[in-house]
């Protein structure tokens, strides 16, 4: 059948729902073994953080969609929360596998206790579902959203720096084989938008990043004897 915008939308939502079928809201045994390898076990912090993000998102989403769409809002929220759980843990596990192979490290205590990393990952998972459900829902049942929920709405909701969100996108795409082509293109557009404007806002961590790499370059120059 020819792909109409509505049919594409419905396919994407169906794909998302299929992903959720295998959703689990608890970390897998493999992932728990990584957590147990950490100097400081991150399990409690991760579970608390996911619960907090779910609560904050629920409030802000309900406020944004207006009372008229409360039911769709709560449906979307429930889908979102489960997808975030599954995506979060799945990504963690896949990413740690890659990092373990790449760095030959087994103790990821620093990374798994890094708040910016986890918040960026959760925001990325939320953005995927929002982009799938939000835009498509408005196409399919004319949901009248009072606030624009498209990117970078989630960064403001979670008080997250765009540059930190940018850092997880590529690894997220690598670790999440079930992402649809549309979703990958959407995340790539987010990347471009961050690099073109959002990352250059005055309080962005990008400036520290540039400063530190310049300092590292400066040190590298000094360490070379001039005669070479």
């Amino acid at each position: 059948l020819p792909q109409t915008p509505v049919r594409t939308a419905m396919n994407t939502i169906q794909q998302l729902m299929m992903n959720l079928n295998s959703a689990s809201d608890k970390p897998s045994d493999n992932l728990i073994s990584y957590f147990n390898n950490c100097t400081v076990n991150p399990t409690e912090g991760i579970l608390d953080r996911v619960e907090n993000v779910g609560r904050i998102f629920k409030e802000r989403f309900a406020k944004a969609v207006g009372q008229g769409c409360a039911e769709i809002g709560s449906q979307a929220t429930n889908i979102l929360i489960y997808c975030v759980f599954e995506s979060n843990y799945n990504f963690n596990f896949m990413n740690l596998l890659q990092e373990e192979e790449r760095l030959s490290v087994h103790n990821f205590s620093k990374l798994l206790n890094n708040n910016d990393f986890h918040m960026s990952l959760l925001a990325c998972a939320v953005e995927v579902v929002m982009a799938t459900y939000g835009r498509n829902a408005s196409q399919t049942d004319g949901m009248n959203i009072e606030t624009d929920l498209s990117f970078p709405w989630i960064l403001n909701v979670l008080d997250l720096k765009a540059f930190d969100f940018y850092k997880v996108i590529e690894s997220f795409i690598k670790a999440e084989p079930s992402l649809t082509r549309e979703m990958i293109k959407h995340l790539e557009r987010c990347e471009h938008r961050i690099m073109e404007s959002l990352a250059w806002q005055s309080d962005s961590p990008l400036f520290d990043h540039i400063k530190q790499s310049k300092e590292r370059e400066g040190q590298a120059d000094q360490s070379e004897p001039t005669c070479t």
């Binding site: 890659q98 990092e99 490290v105 990821f108 990374l111 997880v168 590529e170 990958i184 790539e188």
Partner: peptide
């Protein structure tokens, strides 16, 4: 995914990006 432009270089990953290496 073929049509995504991976930009991380060799030796760069999520651990380095978050200064957790």
């Amino acid at each position: 995914p073929q049509d995504y432009h991976f930009g991380l270089e060799e030796g760069e990953g999520i651990s380095e990006l978050f200064d957790c290496d």
